[in-house]
Amino acid sequence: MVDFILQIGSENLNAAVGLVGHGRWGQRHLATLVKLKAEGHILDLYVCDIDPTKLNALPNAVNRAFTSLTDMLDEVRVDVLAIATPPQSHLPLAAQASKKGVHLLVEKPLGTDYDETVTFLDALPAATNLAVGYLLRHHPGIEAMRAQVSAKGRGDFTQFHYKRRTQRPRPQGATPLETLATHALDLCSLLLKAPLAAFNLRTLTTTDDSAYIELENEDGRLARIDVAWGAEEEARQLILSGIEGEMELDFGTHRLIHRPNGIQKDVLIDIGTEQPLYQEWRFLLTTVEESSGVLVPSRDELLDQARWLANHR
């Protein structure tokens, strides 16, 4: 790979970004990358999909399209690769790219098999930065919630209720646990400050299109997760509550309301309107300059969720 210096905000960057998978979510990535290129945050942009029909009418910002990741990695320089393909292909594609010294943004889940995930992380080059697509970590509302949790202390927020019900049909090959509930499981551990392994499973009800989960740990932290495709109406919210009151985040409207105990009026917290996928990409691009083996989430967090999914799928 050619060395380069990445400075966010510069108008003359030398970063080449590749995207493999141009389905529904890959198109969201591409729109974000086109914006970043227009703003001067990346230089070259490449897209790969095994279905050539998905490469028709790509934006002019795309330098070149490929139907083979091998060809892309062999024929052009790629510094950062986004993998937005079906979950079972994530680890093989990520392993292939990492052997070329490429930094990675892999959509969640990282892998569908716990042992294979361990093997991949063990073999990941020390200088490779890896971000797994838990983009809600970069949502300004979640960042504000984390700030409140850190300021108030670990025991002040003890209940987590996440609802994501969409009218969209279930994508082919998707499962409610690995595709919809993974965001909630990640945020549950993050905001309640306890690994999933510390929770007992009280309820797990699944269909092809939905999942309902209740988790509780020994010190009383409780999580409820309700996700579904094909719902009658859209619902995208997270409620975090405890002795300090309640915070309610509506992902659709970007509204975060704090209801402190003892205060009659809701407090609307200004979190802006920046999209979390854009923020996720800005974060990853910022880490690339150092090539220091940044993992987000951490290795322990990734394996904690991989183990939970392996035990309950």
Rank of each mutant, 00 (worst) to 15 (best):
K35M: 15
S10H: 13
D208V: 14
D226G: 03
D209S: 14
K35L: 15
Y46E: 01
A147H: 12
A131T: 15
F283K: 07
H312N: 15
N14M: 12
A94N: 04
G252D: 11
Y162H: 11
G242D: 06
F160W: 07
S292P: 04
G230R: 05
G155C: 08
V294G: 02
V149S: 02
A194F: 04
L91P: 11
A15I: 15
V106Y: 04
D304A: 04
Q172R: 09
G272T: 05
I5W: 07
A197D: 10
R168W: 13
T253Y: 02
L285Q: 02
R236F: 14
V62P: 08
Y212I: 12
V47E: 03
G133V: 10
A228L: 05
P86M: 07
P86D: 06
P59F: 07
E75F: 08
R77W: 00
F251Y: 12
L222Y: 14
R224M: 10
K193T: 14
M72R: 04
A231G: 09
F251C: 00
D208K: 14
L284Q: 12
L249S: 06
L110D: 04
A38E: 15
R313W: 05
T175M: 04
C188L: 10
W308M: 08
Q27D: 12
L190S: 13
I50C: 06
L104A: 08
A94T: 09
P260F: 05
F251M: 03
L196R: 05
T85K: 05
A61T: 11
R202D: 15
G252P: 00
F283V: 07
E248D: 12
A194T: 09
W25V: 15
P297Q: 01
K152R: 11
T158C: 09
A197Y: 08
I269P: 00
I5G: 10
R64Y: 10
R168C: 10
I269M: 07
R137P: 04
R313V: 09
S189D: 02
I83D: 02
T182G: 02
W229C: 08
I271M: 04
A84I: 06
V20N: 00
R307M: 11
K108W: 03
P87G: 07
A123M: 05
T32P: 08
R77C: 03
T70D: 15
T182P: 01
D71W: 05
F160I: 06
K54E: 09
G262E: 07
E246Y: 01
R165D: 01
N14I: 04
N14P: 08
I271S: 02
L222S: 10
T128M: 00
P297D: 05
A84H: 00
E107M: 03
Q96A: 12
L240S: 03
T117M: 08
D270C: 04
G293D: 09
G155W: 09
N60C: 07
A174I: 07
G245Y: 09
A197T: 13
Q264V: 13
D79K: 05
L73K: 02
T287Y: 03
A197Q: 11
T32K: 02
A174F: 11
R64Q: 14
A194Y: 03
L277P: 06
A82N: 11
G101K: 02
V47I: 12
S10Q: 14
D219I: 15
L240K: 06
A306K: 00
D51L: 12
W308P: 09
V118F: 01
D79A: 09
V267Y: 03
T32L: 03
P276F: 01
